[in-house]
Design a protein around this nucleic acid. Structure first.
Lengths: 352, 352
DNA sequence: TTGTAGGCGTTATCAT
DNA sequence: ATGATAACGCCTACAA
């Protein structure tokens, strides 16, 4: 009730040594079924569970992996970034960690507090999965000197860190191809995310690749940019329209911006997809409820989290192994905003 | 690089004792600025951070709080429950914990694996915040015998556990009042959630209270029930219509079901809000993008997480203190689905 | 302001 | 199959 009991009490209560209790609690072998039952019974009666810290200290493994994700500026009412993405990744990570008997410690990082905040928990985990844009590059690098790390983003190749990412480029190319090939649209605008965002860069690259492959000359820069938020997408679209541009289709860097874009287009009395087709990237929950429903690209968010944790475990197991990375396939989700009829489901597989 | 250094190395490298290094790392006082700098420099050079487990063992505090949330059946494509709620709570908890220098460990619990899963991490944390419907009641009770717990749900009063919840009853009563007083609707149906869900029960109670206060005789049971999912809401609505009932308004137990309901009504060629008004509960992200946008009740999800963690800290600090509980106010969010014009924002405050 | 030393509750190594 | 018994890395009185 008050003071938690220890392995000693459980040991004496069940008439065995602490070593045996330890063995039983670790599900290993080296004890008879009878002994096992006695120990478990004693533990249960005392409401005892092995002390994590003591365990971690002795075994040199906390049994906890940390997940650093970008702080979604909870202050205002403006959704700074798609929360869904983060949450799904968290779930995937939790699943993979649990499967391996570990737990997940979450850390929200505001770019600023990055270093300090992260160090305060670095000692509590066996390693970190660091999501893109949660830490400044140099902070990530510094952190990597203290504990094993796997980055969840496109780049970081230059940092020599393990990483896993979605095939942003391939997905972007796929939607663009769809617009080009299936609908025959040729004048397509691209509304990108932050210029420094690797994801944003990759998606633009995919857009360009599709255009090039179709024999068209791709632009050297996005027609407009937003910060991956709904408001940003609206503003970027307004600018695009204000500049006099009237593309037949607009490829947005992500769903949230597409949502904002849809609002801007509606305000400008431009019909979607009749006058202009629209596509996004991410497939957030809202997308299928819009009208027209948004044609977009779905990322395997859960899988991203899982794979990142798996790579982390591998890295922890062998700190000197060669650098590894994985790119997960994405899937085109065709709905109404591109001009296709009905609310069709996913189409095609991913890219490698 | 390979083996992590210890406090001893940092101590000798900076020419002080381990006690002093410890003091510096805990941000306490009792050391000169010069010493502080030397220690920090040494630590930085060695890439050293205090070993969490060792620290936890010695101080008897892991510096970690656990958050148990319901497993959102990641298997199928059906969203079993509003993920937003869980995620926002997680964020709130993370914030409160961080503010106190602690970290948050997340644990997804499938009703089944509840006991086992949870015990495997019970030793790693100083206490748990257990979200509603993540653990069976008896598992929660059992867990509470091992570590301090705060429940995030309406009931649990009977278990004598601390808890924090949103004012489900008040919010439900408020939307219903709105339908009654502002719109003058009298024939209002209620589509509830799982009968065993405390949230569901409270919301129905609020619905009844509003009706009673308006001099109408409230039903003894919801007109239909769903499992808080979109599919469930659709099905429940179809049943309602199939039974021949044609209410002037439908109050749904949550937003997801309202979304499904909207689809069912559309399929039945029943116009919202012209023919029938609709309201939800939760204010999920999708709600404001629907058309008509959904009138609903917003819960202070983030705050719920924060308060729960705060209560947990208090409980950890004083295990023998009296039981405490808190009910947080909710806010009515009036949009188009109830019949109000435009996309008005929030209205009124909460209830106590 | 700083140092000394015992102990925190397990795990893991060696025995038996 | 089961026991002794050193670590494990840090905190925290207690001293100085």
């Amino acid at each position: 009730m008050s003071d938690r009991s220890t392995i000693y009490e459980v040991a004496s209560r069940s008439g065995v040594s602490t070593a045996t209790v330890s063995r039983v609690m670790r599900n290993g072998d080296g004890f008879s079924p009878a002994t096992r039952d006695r120990v478990l019974a004693a533990a249960s009666e005392l409401g005892w569970v092995p002390n994590g810290p003591a365990r971690g200290l002795a075994s040199r493994r906390a049994g906890i992996v940390g997940l650093v994700f970008p702080d979604l500026g909870g202050s205002g009412d403006a959704e700074e970034e798609s929360p869904l993405f983060v949450d799904e990744v968290i779930r995937g990570a939790e699943r993979a960690a649990t499967a391996a008997g570990d737990a997940v410690l979450i850390v929200s990082a505001h770019q600023a507090s990055g270093r300090k905040l992260t160090y305060s928990v670095a000692g509590k985990v066996d390693g970190f999965v660091v999501m893109a844009r949660s830490l400044a590059d140099h902070d990530t690098a510094a952190l990597a000197k203290t504990v094993p790390i796997v980055v969840l983003a496109n780049h970081s190749a230059r940092h020599g860190l393990d990483f896993v990412s979605a095939d942003n480029r391939g997905g972007s190319r796929e939607v663009t191809d769809h617009l080009l090939a299936v609908h025959g649209y040729t004048d397509i605008a691209f509304v990108g995310g932050p210029s420094r965002s690797p994801d944003s860069q990759e998606r633009f690259a995919g857009f360009r690749a599709a255009l090039s492959a179709a024999g068209r000359r791709p632009p050297t820069a996005p027609d407009a940019r937003g910060n991956f938020t709904e408001a940003g997408g609206r503003k970027a679209t307004e600018q695009l329209l204000a500049s006099g541009r009237r593309p037949r289709a607009i490829v947005y860097g992500n769903d949230e911006m597409a949502v904002g874009g849809l609002a801007a287009l509606r305000a400008a009395r431009i019909k979607v997809p009749t006058d202009v087709a629209v596509t996004g990237f991410d497939d957030i929950a809202t997308s299928r409820h819009l009208r027209p429903a948004l044609t977009t690209v779905r990322q395997p968010m859960r899988d991203l989290g899982e794979r990142a944790v798996d790579l982390l475990f591998a890295r922890i197991a062998d700190p000197t192994a060669e650098r590894r990375s994985e790119t997960l396939p994405v899937a085109l989700v065709v709905r109404g905003s591109c001009g296709c009829r009905g609310r069709g489901g996913r189409v095609g597989g991913g890219t490698s």
